[in-house]
Simulated scan of single mutants.
Amino acid sequence: MSGFGTPAVGEAPAVFEEFGAELVEVLGEERAAWWRKPRSPYRPALAVRRSEGGEPLAALLTSGRPATAAVKIVDLWCAATAAGLAAAESLVDALLEERALAGDAAVKWEVAPGVSLPPFAIARGFAPMRAPWGAKGTERFAGFVTWLREVPHEELGYYAQTTLYTCGAVAGLMAVEARGVVGFAGSGAGDRDREIGFWREATNHPACEPIGLAVRLREEVGSVAGGDAADDAPVEVALDRTGPVLLEDYQGFEFDYRAELQAHSTARAEALGVPIARERVSMEELEARLNDGWVALLLVDEEPMHGVTGAHWIVAHAARDGMFLLEDPWVEDPAGESWVDTHDMPVAAADLDRMVRWGADGYRGIVWLRRA
């Protein structure tokens, strides 16, 4: 990240330390600790505007996941003077211009408790994001976004998984809202019970493989009165590999019983009328189906976003001109992420194409859910 034309730019906290003493003085210890938080590898950058005499007038801290098309304003400070406000507006304007030139779809703004969104942000299109049902303690932040590329959509509700292994369950329970089914309700312990219960019925220990997840999702949407009447096959699977999947690290008994569970899920899918297509889905087809009344649960490799390989489930719910909007149940809160990063997360087709694959063969697993 270049720093949008400012004289002092780089990764936080390294660059923060260069200006640390004077910024601690203006920010206060508690707020400065948030600025110092290690945010690598999420592209942290600090930009500072100064007066002719070298006094700091405004400072802007940003971050953003690799392989996504959004940057988040973590915080903005400015001196309580006309010059400070002008410097703050200049920093934000420069950021918006740079991210538009870079092809990003959105700039988000995370607002901590006790901090207000400056009035000039509204004039630049920053609008409130839908508050999450649950977000691992990061619900305390308010979220705002201004769209640099238009992707027409209605926001899905957001919930952050509370375990390392319930991403598939959470993805499914977020997606069902598009079907008119209540997944989460913002009810704290009740929502976590739903998360764990759905996972227990869909899991292949500990992961949810595509067909088993689709079967549980089909049962979920069919359990609501009228849920079966809208169409014959509200849930479908696209998996361009036959045989068991997500078992690359298992052998012997550990492989065999999981493979048997997957065979049972395949038989159950047939009984429920869940079609399983074996052709590979392109990003063009994914976009077309999203615009034709579907949402998609995507099996992805997290490596492009986090630098560490891992199987994970996310939800794609809108797309336009090669830009996709995703709900990612995982929030890397120890590195400064919040629900603001992972709700309505834009990703370009080329990056999503790298993510939606798993294993040495790079097979692609997608669970389709038809909207109401």
Rank of each mutant, 00 (worst) to 15 (best):
G5P: 15
P7F: 07
V15D: 05
F16R: 07
L27A: 05
W34N: 04
R39G: 14
S40P: 00
R43Q: 13
V48D: 11
R50V: 03
E52I: 14
G54F: 10
T62H: 12
V74E: 09
L76C: 12
W77G: 06
W77Q: 07
C78V: 06
A79N: 02
A83I: 07
L91A: 10
D93M: 15
D93R: 15
A94W: 02
L95C: 02
E98K: 09
G114R: 12
L117E: 11
P119L: 14
A121P: 13
F126C: 12
M129E: 12
K136S: 09
F144V: 08
L148F: 11
E150D: 15
E155S: 14
E155M: 07
E155G: 08
L156E: 05
Y165K: 08
T166G: 00
T166K: 01
M174N: 02
V176N: 07
R179Q: 05
R179M: 04
D193T: 02
G197D: 12
E201D: 03
T203Y: 06
N204G: 15
H205E: 07
H205D: 12
A207F: 09
E209F: 00
E209K: 06
G212N: 03
R216T: 07
D231V: 15
D232W: 12
A238T: 02
L246H: 08
E248Y: 13
E248G: 14
L261C: 03
S265G: 09
A267F: 09
R268H: 11
E279W: 15
E279Q: 14
R280I: 06
G293P: 00
L299W: 06
D301H: 01
E302T: 15
M305F: 08
I314E: 00
A319G: 05
L326M: 03
W330L: 00
W339D: 04
W339H: 01
D341P: 07
M345F: 11
L352N: 08
M355T: 03
V356C: 10
G359N: 05
R364I: 13
G365H: 07
V367D: 04
V367L: 13
